[in-house]
Design a protein around this nucleic acid. Structure first.
Lengths: 198, 198
DNA sequence: CGCTTCCTGGACTCGTCGGTCCAGAAAATT
DNA sequence: AATTTTCTGGACCGACGAGTCCAGGAAGCG
């Protein structure tokens, strides 16, 4: 019945191994043989733990990576209640993606999953949580009178998230973090100056 | 010697046919047989016109599509000299990507090209031109006194481009144009209110 | 018309990769 | 200890798709 501790360990090893491969120089397209090689497992095990085959495996890895994305921005992202926190968050994002360079594990991953409901769901969830953190941060700042209460928090959170996403994408293509930094700096700065309206 | 008119026509037919396929429901991965089927050509022709094989073909299609991206934003993008022009440009971008929905031909295309210098070059060029238009628009507005002259045009152009890119990406994942619109509207609005600084 | 060059078609090869299958080792359970 | 379940290894298969090759048709050219 069910699964043993050993089994769970192996499954975990597979997911993490695949993730490691994605972070390597040339992730290109991840093949099951790649996973086998890096994790020291056999085809049998792969299909034992992921009966849905490659797709199920990749989706598991995608979820794993999606969690990392947010984790890497903590603890700042979870407590954007002061300008200092925003600043630290900004730095963490820039640092993370600059270090990552052209290799966005999630991106190269999702490029391989045939556009299936599962894949979009992973992305949607990630974006939702991310934006939620930003929005709650803005609201908290408003509650403390640090940001104009009139400002539409949801709208600004959405725009900021878009800026970050786009900045990262440009960074992946050109290698420069200029756009990411501009989007972050101007986006955060915008929160300060909103009261100047009319 | 060289190439005849007939040959050029065939080559063009191949590129455009491939582009059509990418715009269809399930572009997934474009195979040479797909191209063959849709363009009524043979393997021989494909390799005759693209000796570099699939990669060279895909790159040609990518360049073709990249041009379309900017063309679809004209004439507005080329003459962002009034607030009305900015508004129209904004609407054109939203309309284009909303219509396109989850299918970004360029994105699904570049996902298939093994990260080669050629691929990044296409993207880099596109982004560069795009940003150049935005920057020149801001500068023009500054010259006419419609935008604060102190404002860093390059920085704002970069942030705006990032917002658009990210907005489109979110739209591709979630189907909602909320982020794209927020990024555009707040980004453009920011140009108006900059003088409020300090 | 003869000759060269370009264009077209499609059969064929060959590597890759996801997925299947089953035999047997290792644990758990009684 | 017996038996049942879970775990592991790897040989094997079949599909698919990129790229090769060459024979033959069309078009330019003296």
């Amino acid at each position: 019945m069910g699964i043993t501790a050993k089994g769970r360990a192996t499954r975990q090893r597979i997911v993490e191994g695949a993730a490691v491969h994605l972070r390597s120089a040339e992730p290109g397209s991840l093949t099951l043989d790649d996973v086998r090689a890096i994790t020291g497992t056999s085809k049998g095990q792969l299909f034992h733990y992921f009966p849905g085959g490659k797709e199920e495996l990749l989706l598991a890895v995608a979820r794993f990576e999606a969690d990392r994305v947010l984790d890497d921005q903590q603890p700042h992202l979870g407590a954007l209640t002061t300008w200092t926190a925003w600043r630290r968050w900004r730095d963490a994002v820039v640092a993370r993606y600059r270090a990552q360079g052209a290799h966005c594990p999630l991106a190269s991953l999702l490029g391989q999953v045939t556009t299936t409901p599962g894949a979009t769901e992973v992305v949607a969830t990630l974006l939702e949580q991310w934006e939620g953190h930003l929005r709650r941060g803005i609201v908290a700042m408003q509650a403390d009178g640090l940001v104009d209460a009139e400002l539409d928090a949801g709208r600004h959170a959405a725009a900021l998230l878009a800026g970050v996403q786009g900045g990262v994408q440009v960074l992946r293509s050109t290698g420069s973090s200029r756009h990411l930094e501009a989007a972050l700096d101007l986006g955060i700065d915008r929160l300060r100056r909103e009261p100047a309206r009319t």
